[in-house]
Amino acid sequence: MITKNNLAALLLGLSLCLPTWANDDTVANQALIQKAFEDWRAGQGGIFQLLADDAVWVVAGSSPYSGTYRTREAFMEDAVKPITDKLATPIVPTVRQIVAQGPHVVVHWDGQATARDGSRYENSYSWHMQLENGRITRVTAFLDTWRLVQLMD
């Protein structure tokens, strides 16, 4: 039979077994990113508003759109704007999974939009983000960059 004292001891024991990364930052960072994706999906803001001015964004891969953007401004102007210029509708994200560990948050998500030529743009993404004081400071984005090339051509 579990008594109050036994339950308290069990819960204390479990909390001592938690990994060091399972702290308030983990929970807060995951919640912040989840809310940003929900807002983005609802058309009321989004993830890019959380980028620090000096954020580094790396697009993994070997396509012409792969590379490193060393500021928020460079990323928005040289990567995001050319993509949105090719779209008739915003990309709508559907989150598959969010995993957080301290300052690191990984989001696996799918995006869908309609291109200006009427074709569908669909891609799957895995964004590995690092946060500091509620701001995203570094991202490594994995996606089918060749699908992006098709959109841009």
Rank of each mutant, 00 (worst) to 15 (best):
D53V: 05
D54N: 08
A55V: 09
A55S: 13
A55K: 04
V56H: 00
W57R: 04
W57N: 13
W57I: 13
G61W: 15
Y65E: 02
Y65I: 01
S66G: 00
G67R: 10
G67P: 07
T68M: 00
Y69C: 11
Y69L: 14
Y69D: 05
R70M: 12
R70T: 13
T71P: 09
R72G: 10
A74C: 04
F75K: 06
M76V: 05
M76P: 01
E77A: 06
D78S: 11
V80C: 03
P82F: 05
T84A: 01
T84D: 01
T84E: 03
T84N: 09
T84V: 13
D85V: 08
D85L: 09
A88V: 04
P90N: 12
P90K: 14
P90L: 03
I91C: 02
I91G: 01
I91Y: 01
V92F: 07
P93G: 06
T94C: 09
T94D: 04
V95L: 07
V95Y: 10
V95Q: 07
R96F: 10
I98P: 00
I98G: 00
V99A: 07
A100L: 01
G102P: 08
V106D: 03
V106I: 06
V106K: 01
V107N: 03
H108W: 11
W109Q: 08
W109V: 02
D110I: 12
D110S: 12
D110K: 12
G111C: 12
Q112T: 11
T114D: 12
A115M: 12
A115H: 08
R116L: 13
D117P: 04
R120I: 03
Y121P: 03
E122I: 15
E122N: 13
N123P: 05
N123R: 09
Y125A: 04
Y125E: 12
H128M: 11
H128D: 10
M129C: 13
Q130P: 03
E132P: 04
E132T: 05
N133T: 12
G134M: 01
R135D: 11
R135W: 14
I136Y: 04
I136K: 11
T137K: 15
T137H: 10
R138H: 15
R138V: 08
R138N: 14
